[in-house]
């Protein structure tokens, strides 16, 4: 089914990137925001024939304070936890309206977008429902690893050891003491046709995945790495560099899950030490060598598990 939907798929190359922008200048994201950048890239790839349902969060706030909007495509915000449900409603409504010939028959990409909080925590149920029901839509999780909009509180996507305002390091705590929830795996467990992780550093890869997600019929889930200089306490010019390091250290591996089969889209042969990634970010500054080693081992283990899944799929 994948192959049929993608028969017209043409890869973007640095020379063939679309000029279209779904979001206009004048948005209020912080200087150097990697989240709006990841979002911008994904939406560029999807093209202007789309309708977006947004969760509450940074991206909603910075694009829509009345009376101005940065949106150049139809966009709706309802609440924090229900982007997937709102998108379901739009998709199902258009389906029946087309059937009843009340709107022109045309495939429009329905996009739901939310932060890691709106996806992994409060919105997980609505997301699961929408994926399970099989709506034809693209869900974009913009993972900046905390609730940034409300002031950098931890989420279940906050990495181990990170400092946030609700996982502060102290005498009794190293900071966040849980390991990042694997949301792409949860999405994949729904048996949906397409799941992918992507990073704005690898922009053609990100955009190709977004385009595939839009072309495929049925639910597609994109998990986009989204550096946040404000919440991660890194320099304003580092969003791309950190995105790149996250991949090169195997902290944030790039892969697709196509009809259940894992495919590594960037194999890391000579990984950099995780420490190089951590040291650029103030949120990890308090970590001691022992904790860093613990993180390194966990990262290695998880990457190995991923490689095994990909090898398994290849062997089939």
């Amino acid at each position: 089914m994948m192959d049929a939907a993608l028969k017209d798929f043409k890869r973007f190359t640095p020379k063939t990137l679309p000029k279209m922008e779904a979001i206009a200048q004048g948005h209020r994201a912080c200087q150097g925001c990697g989240e709006v950048l990841a979002l911008r890239m994904a939406l560029k790839a999807i093209g202007k024939n789309m309708i977006v349902a947004s969760a509450t969060g940074c991206m909603e706030i910075i694009t829509s304070p009345y009376p101005q909007t940065a949106w150049q495509v139809p966009w709706i915000h309802v609440a924090f936890e229900n982007a997937a449900a709102v998108a379901s409603g739009i998709e199902a409504a258009r389906k029946v309206l087309m059937r009843k010939r009340r709107i022109p028959r045309q495939r429009t990409t329905i996009v739901a977008m939310a932060g890691d909080g709106g996806t992994a925590d409060i919105g997980l149920q609505a997301l699961s429902g929408a994926l399970e029901r099989g709506h034809d839509f693209v869900y974009i999780c913009l993972d900046n690893e905390a609730y940034m909009n409300t002031g950098i509180q931890r989420s279940s996507c906050t990495p181990y050891g990170a400092m946030t305002t609700t996982s502060p390091p102290g005498k009794m705590s190293i900071g966040q003491h849980t390991w990042k929830k694997n949301v792409p795996a949860i999405a994949a467990a729904h048996g949906i046709p397409y799941v992918a992780t992507a990073s704005p550093a690898y922009y053609t890869d990100l955009m190709n995945k977004a385009k595939k997600a839009a072309m495929i019929k049925g639910p597609a889930y994109l998990h986009l790495y989204s550096p946040c200089p404000t919440g991660w306490r890194h320099a304003g010019d580092l969003a791309i560099e950190i995105s790149r390091l996250a991949v090169k250290t195997k902290v944030f591996p790039l892969y697709e899950v196509v009809d259940g089969r894992y495919i590594l889209t960037r194999k890391i042969k000579k990984p950099k030490p995780v420490k190089e990634y951590l040291k650029l970010q103030g949120r990890f500054r308090h970590l001691d060598e022992e904790t860093i080693e613990e993180i390194q081992q966990r990262v290695d283990r998880e990457y190995e598990a991923l490689v095994r899944k990909a090898a398994l799929a290849e062997a089939e």
Partner: peptide, 26 residues
């Protein structure tokens, strides 16, 4: 721009000028 009376607000407070954020010179 925002100082409109309720009768002149768009339905549901919608914004009908796409990309009007360009007015904000960041």
């Amino acid at each position: 721009d925002a100082l409109v009376g309720w009768r002149n607000l768009e339905i549901g407070c919608a914004i009908t000028e796409p990309g009007s954020s360009r007015k904000l010179k960041t």
